[in-house]
Design a protein around this nucleic acid. Structure first.
Length: 266
DNA sequence: AATGGGACCTGCGCGC
DNA sequence: TGCGCGCAGGTCCCAT
């Protein structure tokens, strides 16, 4: 799925396009993605609701209608939101009162929609770690302290830090020149500081470039991001390292593909 | 606590 | 051309 920068891009675009618009109807092409309440209650509960706020928490997108009514949108892998005309391949179409549609795209059907009284009651959200931009260096240090897990796996733990996924974990480690196989506890204070800086920096760069479109992800206009051209290691196995020119390696860490430069990342 | 595997899904690109 | 396989931005759950 879209990671923090992609979801933040969607949030910003939607804030301009759909705030204060009303949902006039919901077309459900695949009920599998609706996790709560039931399909009919979901449809009924949304009809006539005005969108007041568009919120992001980690990789989760949330539409707020009332103080006690929220649509929680988890894109997971392959999810994105297309604004405009109704899309044939949309899993769910939210029709707006001005004739436009919010199409919930999700090829792999792993995404989840929930209509809830409070998104903060969702277990996943409750347990989510702090937003990277609100995390201090000292707090980041404390998260790594004593942890024997590999640093790359740790960065993906949403309970520790919200929003980093498999692209930006690899990118941040490359930028910080840290081998993804190192244990978290083995990082020196200088390395922790560098990694912290690079995480914040790469996420900001990605947001500024409207995210990475490496597979199905598109922005709300259906356009590619721009960050994919700037990625240094993700999906670049065998290609030359931008720093030393040696071919990048690919290994599996925690069941996820991981590209890195075995020479530059120590 | 850490790691590995599988599950959930669809569809793409690759080698044969 | 067609088929089987591996793989894909996420997360959960179980076993060791």
């Amino acid at each position: 799925m879209p990671e923090l920068p992609e979801v933040e891009t969607i949030r910003r675009e939607l804030a301009k396009k759909i705030r204060d618009k009303t949902i006039s109807g919901v077309k459900i092409n695949n009920a599998k993605v609706i996790k709560e309440p039931g399909v009919e209650a979901f449809r009924r509960g949304l009809k006539g609701e005005k969108i007041r706020e568009i919120i992001r928490r980690g990789k989760v997108l949330i539409l707020q209608f009332r103080p006690d009514k929220f649509l929680v949108i988890h894109l997971r892998i392959s999810g994105w939101i297309l604004y405009g005309d109704e899309a044939k391949t949309a899993r769910v179409v939210f029709k707006l009162s001005d004739g436009k549609c919010l199409n919930y795209m999700n090829q792999r059907l792993l995404g989840e929609l929930r209509l809830m009284r409070d998104y903060r009651d969702l277990k996943f959200i409750k347990e989510l770690g702090p937003e990277p931009f609100e995390l201090t260096l000292e707090e980041f240090k404390a998260l790594l302290d004593g942890r024997k897990t590999k640093i790359k796996a740790l960065l993906l733990e949403q309970k520790l830090i919200a929003g980093i996924g498999n692209i930006y974990a690899q990118e941040a480690l490359f930028l910080a020149r840290i081998d993804p196989r190192r244990t978290a506890a083995s990082l020196t204070p200088a390395e922790i500081k560098k990694l912290y800086t690079e995480i914040v920096s790469v996420l900001k760069e990605a947001i500024a470039n409207r995210g990475s479109s490496v597979d199905s992800y598109r922005n709300t206009q259906g356009e590619s991001g721009g960050m994919e051209k700037r990625l240094k290691v993700y999906a670049r196995k065998g290609k030359p390292c931008y720093v030393c020119g040696r071919p990048l390696q690919k290994i599996s860490l925690g069941g996820r593909g991981t590209c890195f430069c075995a020479f530059c990342q120590k």
